[in-house]
Structures are given as C-alpha cells and as structure tokens.
Design a protein around this nucleic acid. Sequence first.
DNA 1: TTCATACTTCGATCCTAACCGAAGCATTCT
DNA 2: AGAATGCTTCGGTTAGGATCGAAGTATGAA
Lengths: 227, 227
Amino acid sequence: MKEGPDIARIGTLIGDPARANMLTALMGGQALTATELAQAAGVTLQTASSHLSKLEDGGMIAQRKQGRHRYFTLADTAAGALLEGIMGFAASRGHLRHRPGPKDPALRKARVCYDHLAGDYGVRMLDSFVARGAIETDGENLAMTEEGRAELGKLGIDVASLASGRRPLCKSCLDWSERRSHLAGTLGKALLSHLLEKGWARRSGESRAVLFTPEGERKFLALFPAD
Amino acid sequence: MKEGPDIARIGTLIGDPARANMLTALMGGQALTATELAQAAGVTLQTASSHLSKLEDGGMIAQRKQGRHRYFTLADTAAGALLEGIMGFAASRGHLRHRPGPKDPALRKARVCYDHLAGDYGVRMLDSFVARGAIETDGENLAMTEEGRAELGKLGIDVASLASGRRPLCKSCLDWSERRSHLAGTLGKALLSHLLEKGWARRSGESRAVLFTPEGERKFLALFPAD
DNA sequence: TTCATACTTCGATCCTAACCGAAGCATTCT
DNA sequence: AGAATGCTTCGGTTAGGATCGAAGTATGAA
C-alpha cells in the first residue's frame, strides 16, 4: 500500500471551503492580493495568510511581491486545468453551491474560465467554429483546419505563433453550467483577449462574469451564429 | 461570491487519507469489498463503512450487492479520469507518499491505471505506436491512423467496435512515474485485456502492479520496440 | 522620523470529523 | 433453527486544524 502520488494532500488543499473560494476566485485569471482573497473567502487576513502559504507550499498558487502588495495567481495552467476538471466533475454530480436554475444569469451566459471564455457564449463560439468547419472534432479532441487558420488570420489572430509553444492550440474544456465543451488552449485565451481588447466585453469587477456591450454582443453573435 | 460548482466537497472527499487510499485501491479497476477497502485504508470496518457511504453520496464510487458481499468500484470513467488528473498533478508537484527513486520497481515498470496499462511499459507502448505511425499525435491529442487499424486488426482487436461508443478510442493519460503520456481510452483498455487474456502478464494480488511472464515480456518488447 | 498600509507569526479557543467499541441487521451456510 | 460472515448504525472520545485577537515585520508615504 502507500504507493503513488499523494492525492490526499491535493484534496485537503481544495477541500477547505475558504481555500476553495480563493482558488475559485483565482480561476478568474487575475492576480489578487491577500486582502482581496481574504474577502473572497470570507475570512480574516490572518486566516487567509495561513491558507495562502499552504496553497503555495502545495504548488497550487504562486505569488510575486510588488511594492507592499503581494499578488497571488494560480501556479500555472496545470493548476487551472486541474480545477477546471474538478469543477466539471462536481457539476456533473450536482454539487453546486446554490440551487441550480436561473440564478446568476450573467455568469451562465459568459464568464472567464482561468484564461478563456466559458458559459453559454463560450459553448456557442466552439459550436460555431465546428459547424462551419474551422475546427474538427471527434467528440473529445479538437483540431484546427486550414479554413479555420485563414478565418482567424482575417480577425487579426496569428494562429501559427499560438501553436508554437508546448501548450495545445485547441483544447476542449467541460463547461459546468452548460454541461458541454467550450474552447480552451492558447486559441481560447487569444480569443478572450481579443474580445476584451476590441471593447466588445469587459470583466465584471471581482466576479468571473464577462459583460458584453450592446454593440459587442451584436458583433459576437453575428460572428458566431448558433446552429 | 459563492458561485459555481462545489469543489470543496470533492476536495474533502479526496482529502482524507483513508478515503484517498480507498480511491487509489479502486484505481486498480477491480471491484473490492468493504473489508478489503478497510484493509487498504488501514482502518476498521466501521470507519470504512462510514467513508464508503460518504464517497457514494458524493458520486465518487458505486456499489452493487452480491450475496452477503458488497462490491465497490469507481462510479464511472469520469471518476477515474478525475483521480488520474489529480495523481498527475500531485506527482508533478513532487507530492509522493514515499521517497522517489528506485522504489517499487515493479509498479514503475508496469501497473494498471484504472483500466489500462501505465508505467514504463505503458509509455513504451504508446511511444512505439507513434514511432511506427499507427497513432498520430500533436503532443496532446491522439488519433488512430489507417495503418494502425490494420495492425491492431491482425492482433485480433476490432478497432471499429471500440470506436463506436461515446468514450474516445485513444486518449493520452499522464503517467505519474514516467512523467510522460501513456495510452488510455477504449483501445488502452482493450490492449490491457489482451495482455492478460493472452497470459503475457497477470495482476499482482491487491496491488496495481502488472507482472509479466518471461515469455510474455519477450513478446511484448518485440511487439513494442523502444526507439 | 513618524505614521500608515499590507501582510505574517504566535497563541489560545473551539468545532468538526475521524475513529473505534458495541450492538444491530442481513445474508448464507450447516 | 442456529451459527457465522459481512456490513451498518449508534454513541462517546479524541485530535487536527480552522479561526481570530494580538503582536511583530516590511514597505511606502508624509
């Protein structure tokens, strides 16, 4: 017995409600200070500090000092992917923190999933790419086609440079609210950046919600028509 | 705040050492009784019973009664995939339950990962498929080629029927001992079954280790040559 | 230098949940 | 029917860790 990786340690880190709230907040992709994370978790600064050092020791988060602030982020994309996976599993078992239903409609419509777009609009975007043949899928894996590369080039997105690193270009990510896949990977990240840079949408304060401008929403829906 | 799936609940389930040991034991893919799981976890039967009902309520495991025994398994492949993901993450952060190094050599050489082959030999098998062009990969996704289908057909493995379900045929799974990918999916499952049915290897009692016969090892290495 | 902000460390409290002994229920064997 | 096996439930104990107040450290502003 006692063989293999220590999954209990990871489980314990995620299993505390305060730490889980902090990690969920960091899934927004923004660097947050200890004070902000304490608020997100609903605990005092002392308690938050203790939790943050445990999360850092466990390799879940990283910090960088900047002046008298200390900014925390998820350690890397692997940590983000792990949390995404757990969220998907929890949602599939119906483990939600409040009643399902038409609550938090903004969050279900569009939100940030670590560094890419999720929610109804995220799912719609991937569906649209697949429907027009820009991305091919076998239900699990995703692959960009030549047509897709050309189309994204017109939008001003350089697919070649996105595909150069070790992180995959296209990756599907299970959406906990829609229970279907949306687009992750470097392309998913680039597309979210694109939306925000163009001013079509903006982040909503501390929440993970993504709020579209009327103009931006019109353009987004025209660019990614539903089936 | 308080938005989204309840990851803390999943974390708590996995975070207790006794439950983590049980889940690790169930990653072997075999159905185990409450008594066996109590031994694996190092607790009494009463304590194990309590843990098992929590794991079942949380959707991690399933049970079926058979006579006066109660057999427990992981709930589904999603639960197995979740645990694989957490194991990979834990291993990548160096969270091992005992010193790394040349310990448990049998386990590092070949072991069961829920329903497919992992360890050195599992990685070698996938590498070999890729090297000869039976499987194509972009570093993340896997796809079977026509040559691959033909080759596996000769081994008596019907790829078409394996690919028919919703579960993907080829899937890469991060190997915590090798820190590289091995082959999961329905094909990974079929290949492990093949090894065991042909008598090339057998399961090692309660452990996840897979032990090859001298004859079986010779054939396996010939079939899947290293680079 | 003095004060303020941001965060950490220490110490004490308190509460959850893991644990096991004992008893109870269900199934099978004789 | 009686005994044995496999597992669950109940009750009481205990330990780990989450929590916060208070004090300490570090950086920046006045």
